[in-house]
Amino acid sequence: MSQPLQIRAVEASDEANWRRLWGDYLAFYQTTASDAVYQSTFARLLADGEFEPSGLLAFRNNEAVGLVHYIQHRTCWDTRNVCYLQDLYCVSRQRGTGVGRALIEAVYAKADALDLANVYWLTHESNQNARLLYDRIARNLGFIRYTR
């Protein structure tokens, strides 16, 4: 029988699970990161600071099955900070079981507890499965991202 989903903050002892999940996330988007980036990102997730990234892991049956990274930052559009949900990943065999929704809702709860103005994120237009969820729990404001 499947246990309920457990979501908690990334801890130092989670590095192997986190590396596996984040590596799978990067592979999903057909990219990679150097070991220095892995080390730096994991250290930042464990740091305690207002503008450091935070991370949550989702566990089912004692297995890490999902992750989310989020960062609060200042904005010119509100007196309160906002929250950027940077990375969201769920192992493929757990997709459609509520892992992604639970991770997003956990970030919503963190943002509410910090009185942040909003939570926003980006996804690739081809990520149709994820967009089915996103369209149910958030608004697509139609912006197109440009990068240098």
Rank of each mutant, 00 (worst) to 15 (best):
L114D: 14
A111D: 03
R131M: 10
K110C: 13
A102L: 01
G142K: 07
A130D: 12
G142P: 07
A111P: 03
V107A: 00
V119N: 04
A111F: 04
R136I: 06
G142W: 09
R131D: 06
H124Y: 01
N129Q: 13
R139T: 14
A102H: 01
A130Y: 07
A102Q: 04
I104L: 03
R136C: 10
A113Y: 01
V107I: 02
W121N: 03
R101F: 02
A111T: 01
Y120D: 14
L132W: 02
A138D: 07
A130N: 13
V107E: 00
G142E: 08
H124G: 02
V107K: 01
L122T: 10
V119H: 01
D135F: 10
V119R: 02
A106M: 04
A102P: 02
G142L: 08
R139D: 15
H124A: 02
A130M: 09
L122E: 12
R136L: 11
L122M: 12
L114N: 13
A113I: 03
N129H: 12
D115F: 13
A111W: 00
L122Q: 12
R139I: 12
L133E: 05
A102Y: 01
D135S: 13
I144N: 14
N118Y: 06
Y120W: 14
H124I: 00
H124V: 00
Y120L: 11
E105R: 09
L116G: 07
L116C: 08
L114M: 13
H124N: 08
Y108E: 12
Y120K: 09
R101V: 04
N118D: 06
L141A: 09
A117S: 11
L132H: 05
L103K: 04
D112Q: 14
V119E: 01
K110I: 14
A111I: 02
K110W: 15
D115T: 15
N118F: 05
Q128E: 13
A130C: 12
L114G: 12
A117P: 06
L132A: 06
Y108A: 10
N140I: 07
D135V: 10
N127G: 00
R136D: 11
L116F: 02
F143Y: 15
N129G: 12
A113H: 06
A117Q: 08
E125G: 14
A109S: 06
D112P: 09
L141Q: 12
R101I: 08
A109H: 05
A138I: 05
S126F: 11
R101K: 15
L122P: 05
N118R: 10
Y108G: 09
A113S: 09
I137A: 00
R139K: 14
I104Y: 04
L114F: 11
D115Q: 15
Y108C: 11
A111Y: 01
A106N: 05
L141M: 10
N127A: 03
L103H: 01
